[in-house]
Computed example of a mutant assay.
Amino acid sequence: MTARTTWEAVCTVEDLVPDSGIAVWTEAGPVAVFYLPHRLPALFAIQHTDPFTGANVLARGITGDLNGEPVVASPLYKQHFSLRDGHCLEDPSVQVPTYPVRLEGGQVRLAIAVASDRVA
C-alpha cells in the first residue's frame, strides 16, 4: 500500500474566523485550520488533537505570536504549538502534524496523504 497526496476541500472562506481556528474532518482525521489575516501566509493547518491529552481541542486554542512565531496555545495545559511546523515551544520533543493549505476559488483546501491500494 502506498500513500498519495490529494488537495481536499475542507471548508469555505466564509467559515473562517479571523485570528481563530475551526475544526474540520479529513481523511487524515481531525485538523485545526487557522486564519490569521494580519500574517502572510494567512492560513495554517495543524492536527486538531492535543498530543499531551489526546483531546480534540487545538482549534479552540488562543492564537498569538511568540518572538515572531505564529502559535496556538492549547486550551487545556496551555502549551504553545507553532503553526508553521507544529513543534511545541515548551517541549521540543513533541510535535503535531501540519498540512499545506491553500485558498482556491473560495474553498480552503488541505494537502492530505491518503492510502492507495494501487501498486505503481
Rank of each mutant, 00 (worst) to 15 (best):
T12E: 00
G29R: 01
T5I: 15
L40S: 15
L43N: 07
A3P: 07
S82K: 00
G54A: 03
V96M: 06
L40F: 11
P18Q: 09
E90N: 09
W25R: 15
S93I: 04
V17M: 06
P51D: 02
T6P: 04
Y77G: 12
Q95K: 15
F52A: 14
G54D: 03
V17G: 04
L89I: 04
G68H: 06
A59C: 13
P100R: 07
L83I: 05
G29S: 03
L103H: 08
P18R: 01
G64H: 05
P100D: 10
E90G: 06
C11A: 12
N67S: 15
V10C: 04
D19Y: 03
D117V: 07
P30H: 09
Y35L: 08
S20P: 08
Q47G: 11
R109M: 15
C11W: 03
V33G: 10
R102S: 10
G106W: 01
V94A: 11
N67F: 06
G86V: 06
L43T: 10
P75N: 01
M1Q: 13
R118P: 02
V10R: 02
R102H: 14
P51C: 02
P70N: 07
L103I: 14
A120L: 05
F52L: 15
P18S: 11
D91K: 10
V119P: 00
H38I: 09
I46W: 03
G64K: 00
Y35E: 05
S93M: 11
W25D: 15
A32W: 01
S93V: 10
V31M: 00
V101S: 03
V10A: 04
L43R: 10
T2H: 13
L110I: 05
V31H: 01
V17H: 11
T26S: 01
D85G: 12
D50P: 01
P30G: 01
R39F: 02
C11K: 02
C11V: 00
L76S: 06
E27Y: 02
G86T: 03
T12R: 12
W7M: 09
T2D: 10
P37T: 09
H38C: 06
Q79F: 07
E90L: 05
A9Q: 13
P92H: 08
V114D: 07
A3M: 14
P75I: 08
V31Q: 03
V57Q: 01
L103F: 08
N56C: 14
A73R: 05
V119S: 04
P75L: 12
V33C: 04
L58C: 06
T5Y: 09
V94L: 11
P75S: 07
M1S: 15
T2P: 08
V13S: 14
P92I: 10
I62D: 14
H38W: 14
E90V: 05
S74C: 08
T5A: 11
G68V: 04
S93G: 10
R118M: 13
Y99F: 15
I62K: 13
E69C: 03
